[in-house]
Structures are given as structure tokens and as C-alpha cells.
């Protein structure tokens, strides 16, 4: 009995999917606009998914948000303005990549710093521990050494 109601409820959900289907089929898409839409949509996080952009998400809200992106771009707004619109509604959280300024620079800078410092360390280790000249095969060299 309980199960039956649940299945009925599930099918009601099924109906919700229909909402996204437009009455008339969309006209032949403007491919340049589509490309710009995709580029912006790929940077916005889907609010009802986890860590997926609204470009990639099959969720209904993501498709609708993509529609908003498309409309705003078509109306002449710049990609930055479109992103700013979504930030004003959802907060910085909506950006899949934190803006590279202020405190967020830390996320970009720390790995770069590690590589720079690491290269220095490697240089020191190599210089300090290397044989001066191409050395004859030492005792430590195993069977792998080329002939």
C-alpha cells in the first residue's frame, strides 16, 4: 500500500521533468552564442548538484540557469556581468573557480611557491650529490645499467 503511493509520487516527479520541455521546438541555435553560453556556464556551479557546472549538469535548474546565461549574453551583457549577476544571487559559492584576487590568491600561489622552492632544493641536491664528471659505473649500480 505504502509502496504504491510512493511509486505514484515518483511518477508525479516524472511529470516535473515535462516542465522543461518547451511548447515549440527551439529554432536552429545560434552557434556562436551557444559557444559563449557554454564558456560562461562551465564556470558556474550547479546549486542542486555537487561540484558540477551548470553546463555539465542534467538537472532542470541547471538547464534553466543556462537559459538565463544565454538570454543575458544575447541581451548584450558581458560574461563578467553575467557572472556578477549570479554572484549577487548565490554568493561567490556559485563560481566553480575562486576569483584570483585577495585572499584567494593563496590557493593559486601556494602550489606555485612549492614548485619554485622545490626546484631550488632539487638544484642544491643535484649539485651537492652529483659526481663531478660522468662517472664510471659505481658499485651501487645494479643490473639495469645499460651496456
Amino acid at each position: 500500500m505504502m509502496r504504491r503511493t510512493l511509486v505514484a509520487l515518483a511518477l508525479a516527479v516524472a511529470g516535473a521533468g515535462a516542465q522543461a520541455v518547451p511548447e515549440s521546438l527551439p529554432p536552429r541555435a545560434d552557434s556562436a552564442l551557444e559557444a559563449r553560453t557554454s564558456a560562461v556556464a562551465a564556470q558556474l556551479r550547479c546549486p542542486v548538484c555537487q561540484g558540477v557546472s551548470i553546463q555539465d549538469s542534467p538537472a532542470e535548474l541547471a538547464q534553466q540557469m543556462r537559459g538565463v546565461v544565454r538570454d543575458q549574453l544575447a541581451a548584450g551583457r558581458s560574461p563578467e556581468e553575467v557572472k556578477a549577476y549570479f554572484i549577487s544571487k548565490y554568493g561567490e559559492w556559485i563560481l566553480l573557480e575562486p576569483e584570483a584576487r585577495g585572499f584567494n590568491l593563496l590557493a593559486y600561489g601556494l602550489p606555485a611557491l612549492l614548485i619554485v622552492v622545490g626546484l631550488g632544493v632539487v638544484a642544491v641536491v643535484v649539485r651537492r650529490n652529483s659526481a663531478r664528471a660522468p662517472a664510471p659505473a659505481s658499485a651501487a649500480v645494479g643490473v639495469d645499467e645499460e651496456p
Binding site: V48, G67, K89, Y90
Partner: peptide
């Protein structure tokens, strides 16, 4: 329709 107002209000669910 199209959840336009929902997006205007930054709706998550």
C-alpha cells in the same frame, strides 16, 4: 515558468 524568479532569488531547492 522557467524558474526565472527562483534564480533571481538565488534558490537552491
Amino acid at each position: 515558468p522557467g524558474a526565472r524568479t527562483a534564480i533571481e532569488y538565488g534558490l537552491y531547492g
